[in-house]
């Protein structure tokens, strides 16, 4: 997996690319641990480069979301398409998180 971080004001934007499956969740977990550790609690995850996600990936996302919420932070998503969008929809994750089409729309809230 590839992660690219950019900062806009107090919001951390993380561009996530690759496959988030049972084999690669440890990479996502390591990445999300850095968010709060670096003092970032408002996070937008741009999933436009994410090709695939499974329940193992959702597990990692929910774990990160619970930690951010516990720190009075937030996690929003943008750029979902294809099977990633379908998995978010079927699992109810699309209703549980703020979802946006683009990074700009997510920043505008």
């Amino acid at each position: 997996m590839d992660f690219t971080q950019t900062k806009n004001g107090d919001t951390l934007i993380v561009h996530v690319a690759g496959r988030l499956d049972a084999v690669t969740t440890t990479e996502f977990d390591a990445e999300s641990q850095t968010w709060i550790a670096d003092g970032n609690i408002k996070v937008i995850a741009d999933l436009s480069g994410l090709e695939y996600i499974s329940s193992a990936g959702l597990r990692s996302i929910l774990t990160a979301a619970k930690q951010l919420k516990g720190a009075q932070g937030s996690l929003a998503f943008c750029g979902l398409s294809g099977m990633v969008e379908e998995v978010f929809s079927v699992s109810g994750f699309a209703a549980m998180f703020p979802m946006f089409a683009t990074v700009d729309e997510a920043l505008a809230g």
Binding site: S55, R59, K66, S91, G92, A95, M96
Partner: peptide, 18 residues
């Protein structure tokens, strides 16, 4: 249960549903 919020949502349990 797919209708809970982040706090109430249990970790896991989605794989077999997929």
């Amino acid at each position: 249960d797919l209708t809970t919020d982040i706090d109430a949502r249990p970790i896991g349990g989605l794989g077999l549903m997929f």
